[in-house]
């Protein structure tokens, strides 16, 4: 009788592993924990993109709850979230600051923004990824919610769609405004 239980051992090991892997498969490997949460925005002072007079520097973020959005004209998913970012600008939901990441040619960003609209308060040109690396960016689009003191409070990987905004980002923004 005691030995019969041993025959069940491989099956139970298999079941435990199967459950473990099944849970693992539901997780998105692209969703990485950000090392930047609750830390100050890295200090930077970026040049403007071609066609703009003002760049974007870290101190521009102080005194308001804002969204820092990493984008590039080469990035297809950025175009997918773009109409909604325009909507956020038009409804004055939140100031959006653009980190124009790794543009392939100097005029690519301005052409793209003229064609699709410009939701950004200010844009910085991060051609060699320096600021993107400081932010721990792994891909575009990525967005950071920054509080009034200039501390990064939330990171969203991937496009912002209306339901993500309503359910996840907006409640955080509203809570931070009350702080």
């Amino acid at each position: 009788m005691k030995q019969r239980i041993f025959y069940l051992l491989p099956l139970s090991v298999f079941l435990i592993l199967a459950i473990y892997f099944a849970v693992g498969l539901t997780k998105d490997p692209r969703r990485l924990p950000s090392a930047l949460i609750d830390r100050a925005v890295p200090a930077f002072d970026l040049e403007p993109i071609q066609g703009h007079d003002r760049g974007f520097k870290s101190t521009d973020l102080l005194g308001q709850v804002s969204l820092v959005n990493v984008f590039g004209s080469w990035c297809v998913a950025c175009l997918a979230e773009h109409p909604f970012l325009i909507e956020l600008k038009e409804t004055k939901a939140i100031p959006i600051y653009g980190l124009n990441w790794r543009e392939t040619s100097p005029d690519a960003a301005i052409k793209w923004l003229k064609r699709h609209g410009d939701p950004y308060t200010l844009i910085g040109n991060d051609a060699d990824s320096r600021v993107a690396i400081d932010f721990g960016v792994t891909g575009a689009p990525e967005s950071f919610i920054v509080d009034k003191q200039g501390t990064v409070r939330y990171k969203h990987v991937g496009p912002i769609y209306p339901d993500i905004w309503e359910k996840t980002l907006l409640p955080i923004v509203e809570a931070l405004r009350k702080e």
């Binding site: 790794r102 060699d128 993107a132 690396i133």
Partner: peptide
């Protein structure tokens, strides 16, 4: 990847 290149340079 381009980001890997930038990280190598950093």
């Amino acid at each position: 990847a381009e980001l890997a290149r930038d990280l190598r340079i950093v």
